[in-house]
């Protein structure tokens, strides 16, 4: 079907301008984006296997030797993308390709849920966004040979039903918390209770590691600084301006406008009459 209208020269110019702007914007964006910023990630290496120390290498290069069990090494800087990490411990070793995706990551070697299996590597993203004034962020990761568990603070379940390889996180007021780990729905601690200090303006990461069978359950605690918001609590809330809900003036509210209205009407009437008389 033939078009029922044709483009005038003015319309053509508008279309050309639109096309140009559509094409030019991506070009401009592309040119302003170069040269590409080579961002690196902060990567921490966590030894979460009970027992002796481990040697750690990344992409074939040694980054830590004799890293004690339950210790954290780093951060080291890695470019986002694929890398190979190797942990060599006392009677075990594991070499694993990892993918670095976030600005801050924890690479953890730990026991899997099955005690008979060899250690595995799990990568956890560290949430390093800012926290509210007076608050810290706590993250608990389950990297131990125990079934899904509840994490309690002060006897109350703070995080429910966390399984091996999973984590939970919350922003909490800076304080010392009495924390324990119990089987989901249970009451008999697998770990703790321990006093855990959560610092304002910091990410406190806790890894539950080990296995209850041989008494090797323990916690790795890692603290990463964060930006703390400076927003202060208000000192006042001025939330009323009209006096309409004043209990003492309740009658006055209704009566005064009526009286005022009557007076004004009276004045108006008088003025009107006077003017009428004069004219």
């Amino acid at each position: 079907m033939a078009p029922k209208f044709t483009l005038g020269s003015r319309s053509a110019a508008v279309v050309a301008a639109l096309l140009f702007s559509v094409l030019a914007v991506p070009l401009a964006a592309a040119s302003s984006a170069s040269p590409p910023v080579k961002a690196t990630s902060q990567v921490y290496l966590v030894h979460g296997v009970p027992g002796g120390p481990a040697d750690v290498s990344v992409d074939g290069e040694s980054v830590a030797s004799g890293l004690a069990s339950a210790a954290v090494h780093g951060p080291i800087e890695l470019t986002p993308g694929r890398h190979t990490v190797a942990f060599a411990g006392d009677g075990w070793n594991v070499e694993a390709p990892i993918t670095v995706e976030n600005a801050s990551e924890d690479v953890v070697v730990h026991l899997p849920a099955d005690a008979a299996a060899d250690p595995i590597v799990t990568v956890f993203a560290n949430e390093v966004t800012s926290v509210r004034e007076g608050h810290g962020r706590i993250t608990v990761a389950h990297t131990a040979v125990v079934p899904p568990a509840d994490i309690r603070a002060g006897g109350e379940v703070l995080f429910a039903n966390v399984a091996n390889g999973e984590f939970v996180t919350a922003e909490v007021p800076a304080d010392t918390y009495e924390v324990d780990v119990v089987p989901t729905g249970g009451d008999d601690p697998l770990l703790g209770p321990v006093d855990l200090e959560v610092t304002a303006g910091a990410l406190t990461r806790v890894f539950a590691i080990g296995e209850p069978e041989d008494g090797s359950m323990t916690a790795v605690v890692q603290v990463i600084p964060l930006v703390e918001s400076s927003s202060q609590p208000p000192s006042k809330v001025g939330s009323g301006v009209a006096g309409l809900v004043d209990p003492q003036e309740e009658q006055g509210v209704k009566v005064w406008p009526a009286i005022l209205g009557a007076v004004l009407m009276g004045v108006a009437l008088v003025l009107h009459r006077r003017r009428h008389v004069r004219s």
């Binding site: 595995i120 799990t122 990568v123």
Partner: peptide, 8 residues
């Protein structure tokens, strides 16, 4: 071993 990524 291909590593996992920690899940919420």
């Amino acid at each position: 071993d291909e590593p996992g990524r920690g899940r919420p």
